[in-house]
Design a binder for these strands. Structure first.
Lengths: 342, 342
DNA sequence: TTGTAAGCGTTATCAA
DNA sequence: TTGATAACGCTTACAA
């Protein structure tokens, strides 16, 4: 009352009403042990009564920490990232941190802008999975130079960059897939990958090539495509792959959206899976399990990755010096999930 | 230099170096028109040189606005919400707002805690889709009483609450599904729904019942289940439904996770779809389109809903008085997507 | 156990 | 066009 309608109550107001100092109110509210039980109680009751709410902006300013973690993902709606976010956010929530989730939509320009915004938003740390074509990382330099914990996960820098890196074992994923295909006895392999500017696709490709090389199998250039892995792009490439008589026995799709498209394409063309065509995907998206026939794919364990990121994050937040040992990249294992398309 | 290692540059530092006032620096940085082109340039260059970064906490405190929008969803990883978040976030990003995404994991307790956190984080507005069993809304009262824009979407309060509401036409969805089933000539209907404490399931149920009533069809109690719509729960209920000789001709599943489970269950049991059993789902999850046979379902247009939420949000943010007309609930149309299970 | 006072970095008001 | 000043609300070192 007294004050104008929408006026917010501050600790100063409470202090005035109670005839004590603002410092005492602050301490009482924060459960500072050096305050008497009696005043603590008086203060909390009055605060409630006056509709007081803590002001994070003020306390963040004063404390020089926001309790906010920034996150930049390519797209929230990708299965892998949705699961990752879920797990990460749940963990951070427990520790009193909030997550500021941003998406680059796979645009380098947006990613740069977001990095800037989160930088001046004073997030306590930043977690990033890079856009498809991000090839330099200057926009994260500010975080490094200010000692703000910076962790890349999944799609990480392909050039040396002194940040923490937690990634899937994409090389092994490519290798696993390659070996699995070789075991089936197939040698005519079509390959639809994301652009090689992106760490995950680069490494999956290297793993695959390694497997093929050992088996003395060559990838035919005309059956290799590197582009953003949308359903539309997949169909376009598949149409190009399956013209004429010389057709592959296998499609290795570097994500499950593409693998799903391949199954549908084959169905449309009357190509029998797995007899005439084998298909392997990547990510273990739920769709891969549900389509007929269910698709063999590589599981990336997104929740596990989130737990590792959270663990490292909290360590860095607790002890800035943990920051010093930009130790080995951390690598999360992948698993081959055998189903009916191979 | 001079200062200690990690010291941040503030506008005061820049002012000192340039021999001008902090106010001028602030204005120059903010492109205030009342500053000369020359100083603006000098300031910006020096700022860059000194590694200055804007401090949102300070400016938020001073301006009494954070440019942060809070969002509480049940789970980020649900398809509907993932798409919603993607669209909302992209739109808000354009307008210079950041999204603080939180998930209740369908727990009322967590939802309450999050509301409190976002409240004291001083978010400029809050967007909420309720947990499954949220039946009172006191934890949002603070937002109301402080005139902070509050919008519920999708899962909205079932009792009168003076906040903005933007929801799908769940009643119509239930009705549409019901009529569609009636057209197939089926009368023995099993119904697996979420709990009726949750607006969407309540209204879908009402819509369905309305359709059935008109056609003089009764729902058998033994074929009706109300629980959280996970795959596990779905299987449990399906097993109970399909015992003995008296079996339903239709399963209406109130989400696609359940519908997918029903298709898989039927497959396992050797029940032919749609000849012996028809199935209809809800949400138009991508899995519904991909499974064989693809599932008839109801599309909720999550991106459209996000656009409406963003539109209303931005209006409220621009003009607090728009807040006054807690006008009609806004209702986003739904669409029946006919596929092969009906 | 409590109070005093200063300061976090920015910006709006008023004056020059 | 620029400067001086105060204030946003909170916390902490220091003093009592």
């Amino acid at each position: 009352m007294g004050k104008s309608e929408n006026a917010e109550t501050s600790i100063v107001d409470i202090a005035a009403v109670l005839g004590i100092s603002a410092a005492t109110v602050s301490r009482a509210l924060n459960n500072n042990p050096r305050i008497s039980e009696a005043t603590r109680k008086r203060v909390k009751e009055k605060a409630l009564e006056m509709g007081y709410r803590h002001n994070s902006m003020a306390s963040s300013l004063r404390n020089k920490r926001s309790n906010i973690i920034g996150l930049i993902v390519p797209r929230v709606s990708m299965y892998f990232h949705a699961v990752f976010i879920t797990a990460l956010q749940n963990r951070l929530q427990e520790e009193g941190y909030s997550l500021m989730v941003c998406q680059s939509n796979d645009s380098v320009a947006i990613e740069q802008k977001l990095a800037g915004t989160l930088y001046s938003s004073r997030v306590d740390a930043l977690v990033v999975s890079l856009a498809l074509y991000t090839e330099d990382y200057n926009h994260f330099d500010g975080f490094m130079s200010h000692g703000i914990p910076l962790i890349f996960y999944d799609r990480v820098p392909t050039k040396p960059y002194p940040a923490h890196i937690i990634k899937g074992d994409d090389y092994r994923g490519g290798l696993l897939a390659g070996n699995h295909l070789i075991e089936t006895g197939c040698t005519k392999i079509a390959y639809i990958s994301g652009p090689l500017s992106c760490s995950i696709y680069k490494e999956r490709t290297e793993g695959l090539l390694h497997a093929l090389k050992k088996a003395k199998i060559n990838l035919k250039e005309k059956w290799c495509f590197y582009h953003e892995l949308t359903a539309e792009n997949a169909w376009n490439s598949l149409r190009k792959i399956f013209v004429g008589n010389d057709q592959p026995e296998v499609v290795f799709a570097s994500n499950d959206t593409t693998a799903v498209a391949a199954v549908e394409f084959a169905r449309e063309q009357g190509i029998k899976i797995p007899e005439e065509l084998k298909i392997i995907g990547y990510s273990n998206d739920p769709r891969a399990a549900i389509i007929s026939p269910p698709i063999t794919t590589i599981d990336q364990h997104p929740a596990e990755m989130a737990h590792r990121v959270a663990y490292k994050l909290l360590a860095l937040l607790k002890d800035k010096h943990a920051n010093r040992d930009i130790s080995q990249n951390e690598i999360v294992p992948v698993t081959l999930v055998r189903r009916m398309t191979t």
